[in-house]
C-alpha cells in the first residue's frame, strides 16, 4: 500500500517566482492499483510523481511505502522501492553502455554495488528471454550501445529495467509523450502487459485523456496542486471524455483549457 499524506511543496518560496506546486495532496493506493493522473499544465502531476520519487524533499506531509516512512529518504535510497520511466527517452538509460549492461545495472537496484561481476553469463540469458518478449529484436543486439536505439525501443527497455527488480510502485511520467502515436500505443500495450503480469502498483501521468481512461483501474485529475477528481472501479470503466471535461468544469469552475488535452481527444 502506498500512502501520500497531506503533502505540500512550494518552489522558490519568498521570491517573485514562488509556485505552490502541491497544496495538501492525500492519496492512498492499494496493492495492484493502476492509477492514471491527468490535469492541465502546471497542475502538479509531475510534481506529485517527483515528490514520491524523492527528487527533492517535501515541505510538509509524509509518504509511506507499506509500513516504511520514506519521507526522509533521498532519491537514490528511495530508488530501492521504485521503478521509474521518464518523459524523455534519453533519461532512463545510459546511452554509452550496452543494452545488457543497462539491464544489469537495473537488476542491482537496491543492492550494494561492490566487486562482484557487473553482469554474469546466466543473467545475459535471462535478459535475452525478457527482451524477446518485448518483440523489438533487441535480443539479438544485446551488446549494442543503447544510444543506437530509437525512442520507443529505449522506453520499452526502460520499462523492463524499472520492473526487473519488482518495485513497490511503478512511476510513469508521460512516458509515451515523446513518441509517435503508433510507437506510443505499442509502449502502452507493453506497459499494460508488464503491470498485469507482476501485479504492480502503478501511477501513470499522461496528457492524453483517452489513454487515461483506457488504462488502469483508477483515475485522478489534478488542478492547482490538489486532487480534484478521483474515479475508480465501475465508474472508471464507464467514463467518457465528455464526462471528464464536465467533471473538470464542475469542480474547478472553469473550462478545461488545455490545448494538448483537448487536441488529444
Amino acid at each position: 500500500m502506498i500512502e501520500v499524506k497531506n503533502i505540500y511543496k512550494t518552489f522558490n518560496p519568498g521570491t517573485i517566482n514562488e509556485k505552490k506546486a502541491l497544496n495538501g495532496v492525500d492519496l492512498t493506493l492499494e496493492d495492484g492499483d493502476f492509477v492514471t493522473v491527468i490535469g492541465g499544465n502546471g497542475a502538479g502531476k509531475s510534481t506529485l510523481l517527483n515528490a514520491i520519487a524523492g527528487v527533492w524533499p517535501v515541505d510538509e506531509g509524509s509518504i509511506y511505502f507499506d509500513d516504511v516512512n520514506v519521507t526522509g529518504l533521498c532519491e537514490y535510497r528511495r530508488a530501492k522501492y521504485l521503478g521509474r520511466v521518464f518523459q524523455d527517452p534519453m533519461t532512463g538509460t545510459a546511452a554509452d553502455m550496452q543494452i545488457d549492461e543497462n539491464l544489469a545495472l537495473a537488476a542491482r537496484r537496491g543492492k550494494r554495488r561492490l566487486w562482484g561481476w557487473g553482469i554474469t553469463a546466466s543473467e545475459r540469458e535471462k535478459y535475452r528471454e525478457m527482451l524477446r518478449e518485448l518483440d523489438l529484436g533487441l535480443e539479438d543486439r544485446m551488446s549494442a550501445k543503447v544510444g543506437l536505439l530509437s525512442g520507443g525501443q529505449r522506453q520499452a527497455l526502460t520499462l523492463l529495467m524499472a520492473t526487473l527488480v519488482k518495485p513497490k510502485m511503478l512511476l510513469l511520467d508521460e512516458h509515451t509523450a515523446a513518441l509517435d502515436p503508433k510507437t506510443a500505443a505499442k509502449v502502452l500495450a507493453t506497459t499494460d502487459r508488464i503491470v498485469e503480469e507482476h501485479h504492480l502498483t502503478t501511477m501513470m501521468v499522461t496528457h492524453n485523456m483517452r489513454d487515461a481512461i483506457a488504462h488502469g483501474n483508477r483515475l485522478i485529475m489534478m488542478d492547482e496542486g490538489r486532487i480534484i477528481v478521483d474515479i475508480r472501479g465501475e465508474e472508471k470503466k464507464r467514463l467518457t471524455i465528455e464526462d471528464l471535461l464536465h467533471k473538470f468544469e464542475e469542480v474547478s469552475g472553469e473550462e478545461f483549457a488545455n490545448d494538448q488535452a483537448i487536441l488529444s481527444k
Binding site: A53, R77, A79, M90, T91, G92, T93, R113, M161
Partner: peptide, 15 residues
C-alpha cells in the same frame, strides 16, 4: 560508468 554517462538514470537506479 553509469554515473559518468547519465547521473539522472543512475540515481533512479539507486546509485
Amino acid at each position: 560508468r553509469a554515473t559518468g554517462n547519465n547521473p539522472a538514470m543512475s540515481r533512479a537506479q539507486g546509485i
